[in-house]
Amino acid sequence: MWTRKGCVCVPETWTPVARSAITVPGPRSVVDGWEVSTRRSSAALRLSDASPLAKVSVRADPDGALAHALGVRFRSSHRRDGILVVGSGPGEWLLVGGVGAAHQIAEQVRGLAAGDFVTAIDVTHGRALMRLTGRDASRALSKVCAVDLSDAVTPEGAAFRTSVAKLTTDVVRDDAGAGTGEPSYLLHCERSSGQYLFECLLDAGMEFGVEPSGPTVDGGGA
């Protein structure tokens, strides 16, 4: 439905299209308001764009009521009711949930605050999120990240902020989220450098046959 406003026709209602910072090759379609690549890889090592997932940054007293309710300390993560809660800094959390759920997650967090001073901000659009999955995931990651990726130091659920290909990146060891029984890492960085990080990881994974894959937007990718 188009209408005249001034001298040109503009739509009566706009249909916004959201786009990830990461370009994955392949045919594209709009799913849940996001223009995404429909390419799905079944290679032994996959790098998929998970940017459409809702991301909420939370700040609160590291020893307060919300910290207690979230139950996740700095440098670890866990999954509850389909939401991945990451302890990304002292008194700082990142919550990752299904596409479009950011407002709902932020409200839930405020509900848990019990009078604490809490800030929950939707950073869905501010962060690029990607997932590296496969038997050789840690070997590929170890080419661009100096952190010890062994089970002893960074077991399932470990979360850390470090330099990946010289870019400040938050990494979560999240095999469970991949749901394939393989090692899997979620990596998120500033949206503006998402494509850079994606390409660096593809480059590092080349010797392991890494393939890019489009976003999983059904919420299962968190």
Binding site: V17, A18, R19, S20, W34, D122, H125, R191
Partner: peptide
């Protein structure tokens, strides 16, 4: 919101 930047 940045993902809609190009759309806007």
């Amino acid at each position: 919101p940045a993902s809609y930047g190009l759309h806007v």
